[in-house]
């Protein structure tokens, strides 16, 4: 029996909850855009860490951590984890470039190079969001941060499946998070990325089948590395691998989404902007938001540094 997705949430440029993402996607209207540093930015409207999460424990929390903590909280609100229950968390992210480079900037500009804010030091390291989510929501099982570009959420999904298969976690909250920041905008601009930059976080609960009503069955996730200049070839092989593992063929596929693949449009990014490390996970969310029971969905994504990942889902769960 394949693991299943039993819950999901999204905090997106459409709003801070799943409903606003679903409504926004169905409306087909692009999320509002404001001026950013080097790009227009589609921000999560009204997202204020301290307002949403309270003042306790949030003084040093950056936007990226706040987005992740908020999203995980939507899933644990209805089903809290208990210490020791092996609830896992896997997050795909590039961390906060803003926090990371701000920390260096303070070392370079303060009177002494070590007059940096110790409370913000963890924010400059990529696992801070997962660590803070664990603290806020008592997630004591495997806690994994994967550094990834657009496919990061799919890599995280593969990791979650591996943890479940090996019996290392009872259930896994798995997702991806990205923030808009001026620093990210400049780094992306220098890396040749244009368009609107989006942000947000998507979280799924993945667990063995039979634990709860299944929204979708995760049939397979497969990865490859594209040789320079051949994303298309590697992605095609990767999708074939995943479909073969799922016991399906291309004819069975009723929904497909691509991100970071030249010449394959990304309709989700057209609505909410380029959500960076959260891109592929936002497409999984789009599958869950718009698919019908029985649909077979392929979500494929390419990182600009080479990794390609494809996932095959069937909506409505096991049958």
């Amino acid at each position: 029996m394949n693991p299943v997705i039993t819950a999901w949430t999204a905090v997106s440029p459409y709003g801070i909850d799943r409903e606003s993402f679903v409504d926004g996607l169905r409306s087909g209207d692009a999320a509002a855009v404001s001026d950013g540093a080097a790009h227009p930015a589609a921000l999560v409207p009204g997202f204020d860490v301290r307002e949403l999460l309270g003042r306790k424990g949030t003084r040093s929390m950056d936007r990226l951590i706040g987005l992740a903590v908020w999203a995980v909280g939507r899933l644990t609100a209805g089903r809290p984890a208990e210490r020791g229950d092996r609830s896992g968390l896997v997050i795909g992210t590039m961390g906060s470039l803003q926090s990371t480079m701000d920390f260096t900037r303070s070392s370079l500009t303060e009177a002494k190079p070590y007059f940096v804010d110790p409370g913000r030091m963890p924010n400059s390291i990529m696992n801070s969001a997962a660590g803070q989510c664990a603290i806020r929501h008592s997630l004591t099982g495997p806690n994994v941060t994967l550094a990834g570009g657009r496919p990061a959420g799919l890599s995280a999904l593969a990791c979650a499946l591996r943890l479940l298969r090996a019996g290392r976690a009872s259930n896994v909250l798995v997702g991806a998070v990205e923030e808009y920041s001026d620093t990210r905008s400049w780094i992306e601009a220098h890396s040749g990325v244009g368009g609107v930059l989006g942000e947000g976080c998507v979280m799924l609960r993945v667990e063995p089948a039979g634990e709860g009503p299944a929204l979708a069955e995760v049939l397979a996730v497969r990865s490859r590395v594209a040789p320079p200049g051949d994303v298309e070839g590697a992605l095609t092989s990767c999708v074939d691998d995943a479909l073969t593992a799922a016991g399906l063929s291309a004819d069975d596929v009723t929904i497909e989404f691509w991100s970071g693949v030249p010449d394959r449009p990304d309709p989700v990014a057209e609505l909410i902007g380029d959500t960076g490390a959260a891109s592929a996970m936002f497409q999984v969310a789009a599958v869950l938001a718009t698919g019908e029971p029985g649909d077979v969905a392929v979500v494929g994504s390419a990182d600009r540094d080479g990794a390609v990942v494809a996932a095959v889902l069937r909506l409505g769960g096991s049958r």
């Binding site: 806690n143 570009g149 590395v225 040789p227 990182d303």
Partner: peptide, 27 residues
Amino acid sequence: SPATRLSAAVARDFALSDVEAVTVATA
């Protein structure tokens, strides 16, 4: 600068394609 390069570069320098390349960022 992306940390993804750490694993992707290993795969690409060996011209490995049928591999999963992941960078684990758990400090």
